[in-house]
């Protein structure tokens, strides 16, 4: 099990990591989700030993790795730009870690072939780096990281440089590969879909601090604060007062979460929890609609508030409609200043 405890990293004036604590259990995949500049790559580099910690520690099964140099940590790291060695062929890249361990040539060849087979690149041994497509390079980088049998895998936006269709396909493949091999992994990304697809747990990082850690579902349905909600793309934030299971908001009276405390609160309404209903509590004018294949993303204006909704069908812009809210689709936010919301897996 990997444990990072109150890690701090500072670059002259700026704080890159601010008291970050995070753990990854054996066989677990944890995604660190955050905008660019949030410190997520620094966290990964600190775990790999490429970035010294100012204070704090990195341990593996209780063994302190904080001062152990990178090459003795036995972590696999997959870089965002893959960092494949241009002077070696595919086999040379994949076998590099085995060679560093002093694995004999015959065994090395076999394990290289196995690693390539695992990422479905059988027979690619002699290919040069310049001849690989983006998806192939990504697989070679994965095979190279996995071949020496690392304790855990660190992945830095490994799908970031690929196009959307390839990214979606490969994130599903990666998920099944990590699960099948039971690999412990820390996965850094700015893409929530990717994080939700791949990870058992998701940590949201912003300005060097972890705002929330939880299951993908938990983070999505119960964002801890406004920053997390906004980062996840949830735009429907409204003030309200909770009383007897109902929340009175400028939009109307909507069902409140069951365990919500009474009194004033900030609420977030998830767009997929809204539906067209002539008897619904929210009335508004449809401002725009965007057909997305399976549904419509619409903007509805009520008073001076604009909310987003995902609807099965949508009338023309300018039409007045009424919307109902699914009881589970409303979350009460804590104040952004409260400490991170911890949740056990």
């Amino acid at each position: 099990m990997l444990a990072v405890l109150t890690a701090n990293v500072r670059f002259s004036e700026t704080v890159a990591l601010d008291d970050v604590s995070i753990s990854v259990a054996d066989g677990e995949v944890v995604a660190v989700l955050g905008p660019s500049g949030s410190g997520k790559t620094t966290l990964l580099r600190a775990v790999a030993g490429l970035q010294p910690l100012h204070t704090g520690s990195v341990t593996w099964n209780g063994e302190d790795l904080t001062t152990v140099p990178t090459h003795q940590r036995n972590f696999g790291l997959m870089f965002q730009d893959f960092a494949l060695f241009p002077h070696l062929d595919v086999a040379g890249n994949v076998a590099f870690g085995l060679r560093m361990q002093g694995v004999p040539a015959e065994q090395r060849r076999r394990r290289t072939a196995e690693a390539l087979e695992r990422v479905e690149l059988r027979g690619f041994e002699k290919r040069r780096m310049g001849t690989l497509s983006g998806g192939e390079a990504q697989r070679v980088a994965l095979a190279r990281a996995l071949a020496p049998g690392p304790r855990m895998l660190l992945l830095d936006e490994p799908l970031g440089s690929l196009d959307r269709a390839l990214r979606e396909r490969l994130s599903i493949e990666l998920r099944s590969l990590l699960t099948r091999l039971g690999i412990t992994a820390l996965y850094v990304t700015h893409d929530q879909t990717e994080a939700f697809t791949l990870a058992d747990r998701v940590a949201v990082l912003d300005k060097g601090s972890i705002l929330q850690i939880g299951t993908a579902e938990g983070v999505w349905t119960r964002p801890a604060n406004e920053t997390v909600a906004r980062f996840l793309g949830q735009q429907n934030l409204v003030p309200g007062t909770i009383e007897g299971g109902w929340a009175t908001t400028p939009l109307g009276v909507i069902p409140a979460p069951r365990d919500a405390a009474e009194g004033p609160a900030r609420l977030v309404i998830r767009p997929e929890a809204l539906s067209v209903d002539p008897r619904g509590p929210i009335e508004g004018v449809l401002r725009s609609r965007l057909f997305r294949g399976t549904d419509y993303l619409v903007e509805i204006e009520t008073g001076d508030i604009v909310i987003e909704a995902l609807l099965r069908g949508a009338p023309k812009p300018g039409t007045t409609i009424r919307l109902a809210v699914e009881p589970g689709g409303v979350t009460v936010l804590r104040e952004s200043t409260t400490p991170p919301h911890q949740e056990q897996p």
């Binding site: 030993g49 140099p69 990178t70 090459h71 790291l77 060695f85 560093m100």
Partner: peptide, 16 residues
Amino acid sequence: VRQRLREAAAVLGAPP
């Protein structure tokens, strides 16, 4: 010879 390549080698177990 980008710093990345040196880091990649170090992560794979290569001493300086």
